[in-house]
Structures are given as C-alpha cells and as structure tokens.
Design a protein around this nucleic acid. Sequence first.
DNA 1: TTGAAAGCGTTACCAC
DNA 2: GTGGTAACGCTTTCAA
Lengths: 348, 348
Amino acid sequence: MPSSENDAGRRSATMRDVATMAGVGIATVSRVVNGKPGVAPDLAEKVTRAAELLGYRHDLTASSLRRADRRTRTLGLIIEDAANPFSAALHRAVEDTAAERGVLVLAGSTDEDPVRERGLVNTFTARRVDGLIVVPTGLTDTELDAARRGGTPVVCVDRPTTAQQVDTVTVDNRAGVRAAVRKLYAAGHRRIAFLGDLSAIWTAEERHAGFVEGLAEAGCVLHPALIRRGLHGAEAAQEATRELLALPQPPTALVSAQNLVTVGVRKTLQELRLQHHVALIGFDDLPFADLLEPGISVIAQDPASIGREAATLLFDRLDGEHGPARHRVLTTRYLARGSGELPGPEGM
Amino acid sequence: MPSSENDAGRRSATMRDVATMAGVGIATVSRVVNGKPGVAPDLAEKVTRAAELLGYRHDLTASSLRRADRRTRTLGLIIEDAANPFSAALHRAVEDTAAERGVLVLAGSTDEDPVRERGLVNTFTARRVDGLIVVPTGLTDTELDAARRGGTPVVCVDRPTTAQQVDTVTVDNRAGVRAAVRKLYAAGHRRIAFLGDLSAIWTAEERHAGFVEGLAEAGCVLHPALIRRGLHGAEAAQEATRELLALPQPPTALVSAQNLVTVGVRKTLQELRLQHHVALIGFDDLPFADLLEPGISVIAQDPASIGREAATLLFDRLDGEHGPARHRVLTTRYLARGSGELPGPEGM
DNA sequence: TTGAAAGCGTTACCAC
DNA sequence: GTGGTAACGCTTTCAA
C-alpha cells in the first residue's frame, strides 16, 4: 500500500524542515514562530510560507522542555465528579480564567476517593502541569505536600487541607446556615430539624456547627431528636425525613445541608403532601429549583466565583508571589423561593 | 535569603541524578522506572531507593518526546460548555474510559463559537494530544481535517461533520421525536405544537424533521401556526408558549426540542396553571424533572453512553484500526413522568 | 545484563 | 540580524 497523506501517525514537519525549505537557520524559524522581534520581514515571510506549505505545527511539549521557564501552559484540576453541577461550574470558571492566559486545563474526578486523588496528583505532576487546583478528599494530604515541594503551586478549594503553604478558597458555611436558622425562627418556627451529609466531609461539619450556632443565637431549643447526620444521597434523606415527620412532635421546618439531601427531603414532603406546610431551606442551589411549587429556598454558593478566585490565586503564585498561604472565604447568598418562607406556629 | 526546600520552581531530580546516586547508568534507571524486565534485582533496588531519596518524579513530557510511539497519553475534548449537564456527563464518561488506559483528558468549551473551536483544536494539537473528541460547532471544519491529516484521530459527537474520515457518534433524534408525537396522538391529541432551537443547530433540524414525520405517520394535520423554531434559551421559549396558548385554537400538547426550551415552556404552563391540562414532552432529560408535579416526560439521550462510545472509537484508531469512518447512532429512551401522558380531547 | 551515546523538537547562548 | 551548537530529560539502539 502506498503511503498517502491519509496515513495516520506520519511524522509532521519540524522546525528543521521549515528551515531548510526557507533556506534559513533553525533559530530564525524559532524566532518567527514565537513572534520574537528582530527578524527581517522578507525572511519572516519566507519562513511563514514554508511553514504553511509543509503544514508545520509547533510542538509545545518540546518547546516547554527546552524553554527556561519550563511552563507547559497546562494546569491540573482535581474535582469530585466532572458530571456534578457544582464541579462542572467550578471547572468552567477555572477553564475561562486559564484561557485568558493561554493555559489549558487537565481535569480528573476523584469520587471522594483519596487513592484516586493521589493517582491524579501523580499523573498530573508527571505531565508537569504548571499548577494544581484541588478539591481535597481528606484533610491530610502528603501527596499535595510533595507536589508543592516539587515546585508545583497548589490551591485547595471547597475545603481546607493540612498541606503546608497551600492557598485555599472556601465558603462561610456556618454563617450561611446560621442566617437561615434565624430566618426560620423569625418566621415562627420553634421545632427546626437538621439533615446533614457524612460527618467525614468538612463542609457537612461546618454546616452542622452553623445550625447549632444559629439556634443558640436565636435562643431556640435544640432538640437532639431533630438532628439527623451521616445522610449520603437522596434515598437516605428521604427515609430520614419520613422518620422525622412521624415523630410525636414533628418539626415544622427543615434545614438540609446538601444538594442531594435536599432532593430527598423534598421528595418525602411531596409524598406526604406537606411541601406547602413544612418549611425547607437547602444548602447549595439546585438547577430549576424555581420550577417547583413552592420553589426551594436555598443557601447558594457561587461555584463560578470560587473557581475564578482559585485560578487567580494560582496564577498569582506562578507570577512569583512568594508570601504566606492565603485563605479566601467567600460568602453565601440566600435565595428566597417560597419553601423557606412558609410561616411557623409562633408566627406573628 | 538562603535556598530552602520551600523554594518554588527549583529543579527537581532527573534520571541522571538518580543514576549517579545509585552508581548505575542512566539507561538502567529508565528501565527500572518503566518497569522493564531484565534488570538485576539488587540494581533495581538501589535505583528505587535513590529515586525515593531524591524525590525523583518521572517527566512524561520528555518521555513522550523521545519515545517511539510519541504518545502523550492525553486526549483533547471539545464541548459546548463544561458547565452544561449534557457536556459534563459526556466529559465524565470520556474521562473514565480514558482513565482505564492511563490517559488524561484536556477539555475546552466553545460556547458554539467556531472561532473558539478552531483555537482549541490548535492548542490541543500543539500539545500533541493523542486524539480529539469534538462536539463540532459547524458542519464544515477545515481545522479538524487538518488535525486528522496531521495524524491525530478525531471523533465527532452529537452532530456530524464534513471533515473526512472522521468517526461520529450521534443519536437518532428523528426516531425519538417521531415516537413522542405518535404517543401524543394516541392519547387523543390533534393539535400538537413544536418548539425548537436555532435551525443552525443540526440536532434542532433533525428533531423538527422527526416531528413532521411523526405527524405524517399518525395521519395528523400539521398546523404551521403551531410550529415555532429558532428559540434559543428559556426566555424565548416562555414567550413563544404564551403566544401559542393565546391562539384562538390553542395546542393541547407541546413538544419542546431542547433542554432550556422545555424549561421555558413549563414556566409558562405553570404561570397559566395549565401544567395539568396541556401535555408536554421535552427532548433531553432535566435534572430533578421527577420532583415536579406532574413530572416532565422526556425523550432522553444517554450522554454517558455517547461519551464511552466516542472514547472507544478513538482508542480503536489509536490501536491501529485503519478502516473507513464509522458512524454510530444511539437510540433515545422515552421517560414517562406524567406531563406526556395527559389525555387529549379525542382520547378514548 | 549494562552503559555510552545518539537524538526526539525545541530554545538559549554566543559568535559572526 | 542571523545561524551554529549545546542542552532540556528522556528512550533507544548498539556494543561490550
């Protein structure tokens, strides 16, 4: 079979090829390709033409190997799950901020598995990413420490880490939940329940703490029977809600501390036709939550801002910022859609 | 200031460093690092120890530059928007399939802009990705053609392309809509409206065609006044639905051909309190569509299968498959949730 | 089984 | 301005 232009994997033209065709030195080709000044216009023209003719494509991998700064113009993003809305929005914001600087993003999902996180940190650093943005699966992370010591700046997102000298971007989970609880109290609720995710997750703990603080601030009694933690996924939340509402003295308002938990809670409320009578405030926004009746009121984070901020901190480091670790804490925003505004028995 | 281990950007150990420390040749280090057989156990041990001590990290960029197959173990994914649920699910499926083979994915969003698509194809090929999975913004794509001729296999997803020798994975849009229309007719609907996205988008056209075919098959009259195309986003759909329902002879059933269009339609239905009386079937699933009352019935695609299939086709090519372009067409699945099951006036 | 040396495509340096 | 040449960190002959 004769070799055709359709043959995959055939060697593409190099700078040397372009140089010989244009009748110039290879260094000149490099200068033209990189848009460096100080090349005679006619030579530049010849080089451009030859490159076009040969279908020359600049090889960034070889370039960054030789270049003094050794930048690959690539950064690694380690998230929980690329398919999850929070991660996806974060990803997009990081991508956009990186794109402004000609940087591409390599993404990987951990599914909250520390082993996968370690693996991703390793393959990313093996590819010499310029930096790492990570939603860490655990508080202690020796792999991240190693990466940073190896010269790769790291920014942690959504949760803190024990790794040293690592910038972080988190959200004021406590304040968000505190405010929600105060709101429910003011609307006349006295029996307020809390439904939270696995306590191994830092944000779950923070939100629980905010709940306790909020009750205390409002001077409201904390009923231990109304606290349900360790719920992972919608199913568990659905069941827990059924149990809560079957209590002799059921709650009149519910605070759910995570996305899928909110969905489960609402499902049960609808099963029992109580969605217009039992108040509900969820943490984290849900897509199309305003299509429901009543709409689900939420304490929303802004994943886009988080991603932008994280990328900005990272590029700062790449630009030479050498100061101590910085910890940005973003605020949440309460979105009133109806379910959080249902009045309680002590309403005025 | 003295140089400390905290100094970012300091040169990390190379194979040469490991070789001198272990007192062996650099080739031996390479063999050990790559797990190649035929190295004396004691030497291997010495090398491993030295690597550990020096904190050696294998450099995959240098490796693939020199390696015979020139693989970077990286592939490029070009989608509409990393934050959009369809793209995100696709991304995750591609990531998982790639991860099984030790391949990482570099992702970029086009926002349906052909200029951005071209830019992404270029930066990806400059980084020498092993292959490209693309949701093409237009039918004609010279850049993709160039990439493929340059030896980078390409798979197009969701839409076809004019680029030669490119495998594709699409969905049978027509059949999905046809079946939905037949279902509505069988439930007694005779005035069925269609709300579609911009006709520049291939899938929008296909879904419209399926609508027309479905009416014809059912022997149902096509009322031109009930066809609204060129709707981009929820707002436009909301307005169009208002107009349709204000007609002297309004539709009793609606088919919406896109995600956000479905949301807009439903919003108007709820505004007018018609969600229990006017039937609705949407194309593409919505998260939490089953929390609504009635639930929104949809013609669902499976982005995960699409992504897996695309990645599989791509790896096939990388494994040497040289045959003609393959075109996989996946089927859709109807999810009955209530809104599509509301009876029409001619119901039996 | 091991190591020296060539070279992957590029950039940086230094002479011209 | 321009071009030769060394080197980036690695893999791959090839000879010992």
